[in-house]
Amino acid sequence: MSTPKVAIVVSTYPPYAGGMGNVAVEQAQSLAARGYDVTVYTPAGGAGKAVESAGGVKVVRCLSVLRYGNAAFAPTLRQQTKDSDIVFLHYPFIGGAEGYAKNGVLPHQQLVVYYHMDTVGHGWKKFLFARYHRRYLAPLLAHAKLILVSTRDYAEQSLLAPHLKTIDKRLRELPLAVDTERFFPAERPKLLTKEYGFESDTPVALFVGGLDSAHYFKGVPMLLTAWRSVLCALPNAKLLLIGEGDKRKSFERLAKKLGIEDAVGFVGGVSNDELPNYYRLANVVVLPSIDASEAFGLVLLEAMASGRATVASDLAGVRRVVRDGETGQLVEAEDSKALGETLLHLLTRPAVAERYGERGRVVVESEYSKKVIGDKLAELLTLVL
C-alpha cells in the first residue's frame, strides 16, 4: 500500500496564535511521524511563505480573496487538495468548507471533519453564523466518512446535537493533545520572578488566549472585574494575561478604569520556548470563557501538564477537561462574583492548588499526551482508508 496522503484544511495556522491552528499543527506532525504524507492547506495571510515546510509537514498558504477575522474565502482549496487520499477539514472554516459541503470530495477521497466548536457571536454576527450553519453544516456532515469531536459532551450540547441520530455511527471522540515533555512541573522561574518584581510567594493567576475580536468569548472583561474583587482581599495578587489582538488596548483601558492596572500585566505574545515558564510562574491558570465558542481549552491541558491548578467556566466540553474538585474548579459562565471567589480560594490555599496541579499532571500523562492522542488519531484514520 502506498503512503496515504492527508490534506489538513484549516482556517488558521501559525504564526497566527489560535487554538484551532495549534491543534492542526499537532495533528499534522503526529501523522507525519507515523508515516503519513501530510500537507496543510490554510488561507494566505500577512505572514508565512506561500509554501513552506515545518516539522516534516508541507504547508500551503492558499489564495484568499476576502478575509474577515478568521473567515477567509479560499476558492482554490478543493482543487488544491485533489491529489490527497483523505481531506481532513477543521470546522468551522467559513470561506473554505462550502465547496466540500456542496460537492463533497472526489471519488477516490474520504472526507474527515473535525468539529471544533460552534460559532456563536453577537448581534449581526450571531444572525449570519446561524444562517451559515443552517445552510452548510448538514450537507457537510452527510459527505463525511468520519466526524471527530473533542468530547461527546460538547457534541451533545452543540449545533451537532440535532444531527446526532444520523451521524452517530460515524462520530468519534478525539481529545486535544499536550506535549508533556515541553510542559512539565518545575519551580517558579527565578528570572521571570525577578523580571516582574514578584516575591517567591506572590499569588499569581495566569490567562492565556487571544485578545482579538475573534476570541471575544474568552471572557477577559469578566476576568478583570473578578480580579478587582480578588484584590480587595488579597492586594498583593497579580494577574498576567498572555496574548495579543485588536482588543488588547480596550482591555488595558478597562483595567485602568477598574483601578487594577498595577495588579494586571498584559504580557503580549510569547514564544513557544517562553510559554512553559509562564505556566510555572503561576499558581492558578484561568479560562473564563462565556459561551459555546469554547469547546475544550487547550490551555487547560498545558496548565495541568505544568502541574498547575485550573479554574474554568462550567461549559460543555470544558467541564470534561477540568475535573471539578480534583484538578481544578469550575464556575458558572459569566458569573464574575463566583469567578473571583474561586480564584481567591485557590490563591489563599496554596496546598489545595498544589494538590490539584499534581493530580492534573497525572491525568494528562495518562489521557492527553501526544503519544496517547497521536496513536488514537492514527487508529481512527484506518477507519476511512
Score class of each variant (00 low, 15 high):
A226C: 08
A161I: 09
K238I: 04
Q27V: 07
K370S: 14
F184A: 14
G325I: 05
F88S: 09
A233V: 10
G123C: 01
Y368E: 04
N236F: 03
T81M: 08
E334T: 13
K165D: 13
G121P: 11
P203W: 00
A233C: 08
E181N: 13
G104T: 03
T310L: 02
E379A: 15
E156P: 12
L63C: 10
G245Q: 10
G123F: 07
K256A: 15
Q110Y: 02
L383Q: 14
H163T: 09
G69I: 11
K169M: 08
V220N: 02
L347P: 09
A303T: 02
R134Q: 15
A32K: 03
R172A: 15
Y68W: 13
D153M: 07
L385K: 13
Y136I: 07
A351S: 15
D153P: 11
E195G: 00
G245V: 05
Q29A: 09
R228H: 13
K165F: 00
G121M: 09
L241N: 00
T202Q: 06
F198Q: 02
A142H: 15
D246S: 11
A97I: 07
R188E: 05
A161M: 11
R172Y: 03
A305M: 04
V120H: 05
V204P: 02
K256H: 12
G95P: 06
D273K: 14
T382M: 12
G297C: 10
A226V: 07
R152K: 13
Y368S: 03
A44C: 11
E261Q: 14
G360Q: 06
L281R: 02
Q80D: 14
A33D: 13
A237P: 08
N22V: 07
N22W: 03
K247F: 09
I94P: 00
K145Y: 01
G209F: 09
T180Y: 00
A44Y: 00
V384S: 06
